[in-house]
Design a protein around this nucleic acid. Structure first.
Lengths: 290, 290
DNA sequence: GTCGAGCATAAGTGAATCTTAAGCTGGAAC
DNA sequence: GTTCCAGCTTAAGATTCACTTATGCTCGAC
């Protein structure tokens, strides 16, 4: 019988590309991962990995097995969720990931709602950029995460992750009537590697120029303070712009972002996940989105 | 992560009812099964087994998990089948179960066809009564089996077994114009516990009487020889009655049976299974069914 | 009351799986 | 060309896990 643990390692290899990266993700040594994948290959009776020099790639059979690994692991996830439901109402620890703005605006009321409705639940929150969420979910470091996707940035598609939309919001530009009008300005963006940073670059490229990015700041309050101090322009989401500092004018852009709750596929029936998503949804109307 | 091996044990327990029977089926000691199921319960966090005296029954949560066990094991079966397909054409050993008549009439041409088309295949045949087939399939002792189902006998439904119809045939009665006319005769049936035996009893009950079963004989040629010797009447399928001995007249009954190829659900994509079923099907037209 | 079927627990053994340590390979830097 | 380093594998040892054997418990049958 095929071992789901080995299938999980193969799936991680398909996403991460190197055995060392897989080992790091599951906190094993590369040696252990290599041995397990070799054993999987032996049981499979087909070559799954192509060793070319100091790197490995998946063979067609390997890719085929990865698809089946998704299906197997999803069913196991469903079984675990069903057991959690059988244990009774939502209880126990639930690890929640959230991007900084959501952690500040959405989570406080949502967590109050959540623990109020289900005293047995112990939410544990980690700030995390949406770009890293699917890896953390798959690794089991998180159970559910708040992520967003932008118009210009293709959503991170991952066969093993499911996402449920919560709300959308518009984006705003500081002190200029349009992105094109900010062609020659200094720009303030989030740190490289974050989704927000990618979004800003792409939005400027769509307007026909490369932004002159001078500052990398993740906290939108700080971003707005920089803008107020005349240090540059920035694109901020509605939620981060509820109380702009004096002197900063905001122009609504024809650009939106959507916030979603993401979790491992098959885990949606988990009572704690369901309760968390319900609490997120309940907290949405309290946000000032217009 | 839930262990599919333990899920398999739980599923067997659901079907067999006692830990000892499960142990016997998987050739473990009862102790090992007990320990594994205890471990599964611990991981599940819910009671799965109800210990009442010296017997165990599944709790509702246990039954729930059995349903998920089916799904998980089916996906694993699919993955294995995909790997077998990736290994290339059908090859290696394939264990075939068949009821005696099929072994005699259908298998010779089917096996010739099969090994002719796929020289790498090594078919291994075991005679087995349809009533025992699903257990043998689930236990991995067989890969594919020829079974039949009768009009009066509800087919053995098993969520983990899939069956593909091959052909149907009529049943015949020896030396009497109808079953009702054989009310006071001695009867020859197959051995108790076989599907054919159950069918004969039910057919007589449907005609309003309990048969006076005097002989239990599995081989239909012997059955017909007994009938020719005036030792009783019997119901035989068309395939077993191609050359009735002199003195035996056969009357077609408004009663049929269907022959099917059964295999583990999810295993239908396995190239060897697919080739075997195709060979069975190819051999059907050579049978004298009317 | 005794026996036996059925399950659980304790203790021991062997296999599987991990880590540590060492070696191999190929690309990049110099 | 040489050196270095990233990445994978293999070997050897340690730990954990899963099974067997042995024993005890409980309940129902006789």
């Amino acid at each position: 019988m095929l071992d789901p643990r080995k299938l999980h390692l193969l799936r991680e290899l398909a996403r991460r590309g190197t055995i060392a990266a897989v080992a790091e993700a599951v906190t094993f040594t590369p040696s252990a991962v290599s041995q397990q994948l070799s054993a999987l290959e032996r049981e499979a009776g087909v070559r799954l990995l192509e060793r070319t020099g100091r790197t490995v790639t998946l063979t067609p059979a390997g890719h085929l097995l990865v698809e089946h690994a998704h299906a197997v692991l999803e069913q196991l996830e469903r079984a675990s969720a069903a057991l959690a439901a059988a244990r009774g109402g939502p209880s126990g620890p639930i690890r929640i990931g959230a991007f900084p703005t959501a952690a500040r605006v959405l989570l406080p009321p949502a967590l109050a709602e959540l623990t109020g409705a289900h005293p047995g639940l112990v939410p544990m929150v980690s700030e995390i950029d949406p770009a890293d969420v699917s890896a953390a979910l798959r690794a089991g470091e998180l159970d559910v995460a708040l992520v967003h996707e932008y118009d210009f940035v293709p959503p991170v598609t991952d066969a093993s992750i499911e996402a449920e939309p919560l709300f959308g919001e518009a984006m705003y530009l500081t002190d200029r009537p349009s992105i094109a009008a900010a062609r020659d300005d200094a720009w303030i963006t989030n740190k490289p590697g974050t989704l927000c940073h990618t979004m800003a670059i792409r939005a400027c490229q769509a307007a026909g120029f490369e932004p002159d990015v001078r500052h990398h700041v993740d906290d939108f309050d700080t971003v707005l303070a920089f803008a107020a101090a005349g240090q540059g322009v920035a694109i901020v989401p509605r939620l981060a712009a509820t109380a702009p500092p004096p002197g900063v004018t905001l122009t609504r852009l024809p650009l939106g972002r959507r916030t979603l709750a993401a979790f491992r596929r098959g885990n949606g029936e988990h009572p704690a996940i369901g309760a968390a998503v319900a609490a997120f949804r309940a907290a949405v109307p309290r946000l000032s989105l217009r």
